[in-house]
Design a protein around this nucleic acid. Sequence first.
DNA 1: GTGAAAGCGCTAACAA
DNA 2: TTGTTAGCGCTTTCAC
Lengths: 341, 341
Amino acid sequence: MIKREKAPTRKDVADLAGVSETVVSYVINNNRYVAKEKRERVLAAVEQLNYRPNNIALALKGKRTNHILFICDNISNEYFGKIVEEMARIAAESGHLISLMGSRNDDSFVSLVCSRVFDGIVISSTSFEEKYVLRLIDTGTPVVLLMNREYTKHVAGRAAQIYTGIHSGIKDCVQLLHDMGRQHIVYIDRVSKKRHFSTMADWRYNGFVTKMQECGYRITKDNVIVGYETEEELYTALCQRIREGLQVDGIVGRNDALACVAMQALKDCGLRIPEDVAVVGFDNSRMSSYCTPRLSSVELNKPAIAQAIMDAFEEMNQGSAPPVVRLKGHIVERESTRMPE
Amino acid sequence: MIKREKAPTRKDVADLAGVSETVVSYVINNNRYVAKEKRERVLAAVEQLNYRPNNIALALKGKRTNHILFICDNISNEYFGKIVEEMARIAAESGHLISLMGSRNDDSFVSLVCSRVFDGIVISSTSFEEKYVLRLIDTGTPVVLLMNREYTKHVAGRAAQIYTGIHSGIKDCVQLLHDMGRQHIVYIDRVSKKRHFSTMADWRYNGFVTKMQECGYRITKDNVIVGYETEEELYTALCQRIREGLQVDGIVGRNDALACVAMQALKDCGLRIPEDVAVVGFDNSRMSSYCTPRLSSVELNKPAIAQAIMDAFEEMNQGSAPPVVRLKGHIVERESTRMPE
DNA sequence: GTGAAAGCGCTAACAA
DNA sequence: TTGTTAGCGCTTTCAC
């Protein structure tokens, strides 16, 4: 029951300009010589009718759709929004639309995405299954992966891979706390309704464990807080564990929100930040400058990430092999790790 | 140079099942009687080839695209993300994709959106120009407007209108401060590179001014903080104005981030919150529970908004007139407005 | 109950 | 230099 008013078609333009549809096509695409005078008539008709080529018809013909899709875990995370904003800025001149979509781990979601046809798909999700990634790649659409996690060999060489700096970022956090002489460093892993546990395939978790070992720390189950479904639950559990004597003088949060929850728990247990416990978050989101104390946090280079994504699509469309890019982030230090004089 | 591997088409299915393409179509759409045995062969072929109808071809035929677009001002605002999440949850069973896109105020953006064809478009933007909204409506696509601002008569009846509770929410803020006996209530308006000034067409500004008058306050230029390009600039200016003796004992922030900036300025000027100045924000975003003191904030009913949007599309697709829906939010009170005993 | 054929808006051989 | 025409994958009369 969807009725659309008839947008002007190529035929309308042709009629108005008194030429054949083909000529219109040539003028629009600028790929054949057309008599100057006819060309001008066509352009005038285009102008007058406010004609725009129908993207859908183009897509059907196997042409570009001018639409790039960004699939993420959590659409309300400002990190993704910022990257998409940057991408949109870059894409504005090439005439691409960028849209952001939350992932769903099921066949019908993937089928829908496949059938809708995009010029490119970027995936930044720790939970989106690799088999689905492969199905997307199989459609022939250029795919860019933001490497939050490891993928198997099946993906290698078939999709662009951008290492955003997550791994080294988390390592920097551990280094920072290590440099402060902290002995009991604790990592706050994701909260998840599905009780999703991180493995070494997860690049944050991996970075933490790897760096801890490099720094000579021994890792026990007390070094990784995991298994809670909500932030409230995490808060409560944290308070309890602290009161029960959990040894902790440094915390690395998987993201800023979790770091903030941890800070809340610490403060409510009478611990001082950073004197008793130093805390670092991840994402450098707005809340890191608004919480108390202000939170040190890893800032990934979002403009560079966005640029790398767009460049990767460009290259792949030229026929090059999917590139692999390695970027780095840096810690923005604030009060939560800065000892008062 | 985009090459896609050939996805199975209706013809492949027909060949495999040994029937005509038409029969396949009938089976898929379930709109004609097909001999049971043939139907099963078709279904089997579909299964075997993992065939999915090509959405683009459907769209070209004027069918649904199963894709709804949400256009917003600021894609990294978690408010939009939450609404889209809810919409996606509702849409999962009807098989719709929802995607979020930042608006751009120019012809080419609108043309691109028009030509891409969506089943529905929701617009929540204070800056997206009405003429562009009208162009979108003119394509025949059902449009839902989230009423952050006023539109002219040209839009009325042609697009669904959802009043999210912004207007009453801001009024509630003023009421709350009024009830606390505050005399000098200040509204922090948006920061904007373009030095965009709010007018009475903006529903937050409008709500503030209206309610202030209803409560009998006199409004001077000191009651509206406006005209700064960045949050830093706002912070600096605020500090200076406070030191110069700005009269203020209540603040309403256009959003949580601005309220937080204001709190920072107040604290840094030695004022106590809420004793000296009570502060309310808007959006009830995560930062409102992480800042110090925790910020009271207006929570809009995002699940209800999402439901209203999806219902509106449903109705419009049934051929009903675009509905008008009025929702309400409520203030989540926290420390920033709660006087200690 | 089923199939042939037209056509959605567009591009790209191929002919003229 | 320009027009004719055959499709891209699909739906839907309209015959059979």
